[in-house]
Structure formats: structure tokens, C-alpha cells
Computed example of a mutant assay.
Amino acid sequence: MIKIIIIIICLLVSAFGYAQNETPKDSIPNKLEEVVIDAKSKTFINKNGNLKIDVPNSIYNSIPNTMDLLSKLPKIIISSDKENISIVGKGTPLIYIDNQKVGINDLNALAVDDIKNIEIIQNPSAKYEAEGRAVILVTRKFSKKDGFRTILSETASFKKDFNNYIGFNSSFKKGKLEWKANFNYNQLQPWEYQSVDYAIPNASIVSNYNVEAFTKRKQFVFGGSLFYKINEDDYLSFTVSSKLQSDTFDINANTYNKKRMLQITF
């Protein structure tokens, strides 16, 4: 009799445990079809004083050209004619694209859509031959799948005057071989102004002037690159680039000088 009671108790405990572990069929699907992990990468990474910018995942990916993109980054100063780059406290930096030393013209011919990230290296290692200067390292994106891609873009902006940027960017990849080509037509109307007011009231001296320049600049920027991937870290490349533009504009200057009773106006 005792054995029968023990067996009944064990059966009841087992049934209760099974009931607790059983999951209703309608609570979760029988088959998990897809898992999506949504994660956002950091736009800026500051490591050992070097700043790295993830361009595709930032607001900078909508900027029409590379020089304008660089002008938005911290510590980088672009001259008004976009022919010179400097870094605050470091002077003129060396420019590298995928660990290859390049010049300003190569940056002009590089499409923003092809940039993976930009790194501002304040204290570069010896491999960059920096000679104490800073380095701007631009890393390009490379296609992972074979195929052909073409992107057309147009950006219009109003600063002082109307500016228009039209871009054509194309790439083709087959196996380890990849080529890229881009063409940009920029219709720019930059405006520059400078004014100085100077006065010595006790000596009755007044001097002031203002200079204003309006430019209608048409730019033709084009470039092409051919890449052959050797392994994950090494590749062979051939790149050509060019920029054509004309700068014809008037400079208007107004000057006023006064010394005591003598007034000179131009």
C-alpha cells in the first residue's frame, strides 16, 4: 500500500512539473524565420588624439564634394580657393588615400560616396613620412559583390548666390578587379568681402575701406581608378584625376581717408 501511494505521488509531481514546463503553442511561433540586430556605429572615434569619422553613417554623406566635406571636420581649415589645406596647430598636413600619398587634385576627383572613413592623425608614425606634420588619411569603400553601379546626383544650395553641383559616379567589379570613374560639374558663385575701419579721434584721422569680389566659377572635376586585389590587405591601383576651372571676376574697392582738414576719397 505504501509503495502504491509513493508511486501515485511521483506521478502527480511529474505531471505538475510537465504542466509548468509546457509552453502554449500560440505564445511563440514554431519557427524563427529572421533575426534583425539594429546597432548604430559611432560617427566620431577619438583615440590617442587621432579623430576618425565614419562618413557613410554621418550627416556628411550628403555633402556634394570632398573638399567641402573636409571643411566641416574639426581642426581642418580649407582656403577660400580650395587649393590649400591646413590643420590648426600643425600647419599643412600630408594627404593619404588608402595609404598612398596624394595631392589636393586627387581629393577633388574623389567622390564622397566612395569614402568609407576619414582619419585626422595628429601624431603620425614613421610609415607616413610625416616629418612632424599631421596626416589626413582617407579610406575608400570597395565593393564586395560583382556587378555594375552608377549614381547620379545633383545638389543646389544658396549661400550668397546660387550654387549647383552635378555628379556622376560609376563602378564595376569582376572578381579581384574593380574600376571606378566619376565626373562632376560645379557651377559656383563664391563671394568674398573684407572691411576695415580705423580712426584716431584726437588727431582727426579716419581711414576705412571695403573690398568685395563676386566670382562665377565653373568647375569640371573627373577621375578614374583601377584596382586589383591581391589579398585582404594588399592591392595594386592606378589612378588619374584632373580639375579644370576658370576664375574671372571683378574686385570692387572703396576707400576713404581723412586727416584733419584734408579728405581723400577713392
Rank of each mutant, 00 (worst) to 15 (best):
I4S: 12
I4H: 08
I5C: 15
I6H: 14
I7Y: 15
L11Y: 09
L11N: 12
A15Y: 09
G17K: 11
Y18W: 13
N21S: 14
T23C: 13
V35Q: 05
I37V: 13
I37D: 08
S41E: 12
K42E: 04
F44Q: 03
I45P: 05
K47A: 07
K47V: 07
N50G: 03
K52F: 05
K52G: 05
V55H: 00
I59H: 04
N61S: 12
I63Y: 04
P64V: 02
M67L: 07
M67C: 07
L69A: 02
S71I: 07
K72L: 06
L73W: 01
P74T: 00
K75W: 08
I77Y: 14
I78M: 06
S80T: 13
D81E: 12
V88M: 05
G91N: 02
I95F: 07
N99F: 06
K101R: 11
G103R: 09
N105G: 08
L110W: 01
D113V: 08
P124M: 02
S125D: 13
E131P: 00
V135I: 04
L137I: 00
F142C: 06
K144F: 07
D146C: 01
D146T: 00
G147C: 02
T150C: 02
S153Y: 12
E154R: 12
T155P: 04
A156T: 14
S157R: 10
N164Y: 11
F168L: 08
N169F: 03
S171T: 06
K174C: 02
G175K: 02
W179A: 02
W179V: 04
N182G: 05
N186I: 11
Q189P: 14
P190L: 04
Q194I: 10
S195D: 10
D197W: 14
Y209Q: 03
N210A: 07
V211L: 07
A213E: 15
A213F: 12
T215C: 08
K216A: 13
K218Q: 06
Q219K: 13
F220A: 14
F220L: 13
F227T: 00
F227V: 01
E232R: 06
D233Y: 10
D234L: 11
S237P: 04
V240I: 09
S241H: 03
Q245N: 15
D250I: 08
D250H: 04
T255K: 14
N257Y: 06
Q263P: 01
F266V: 12
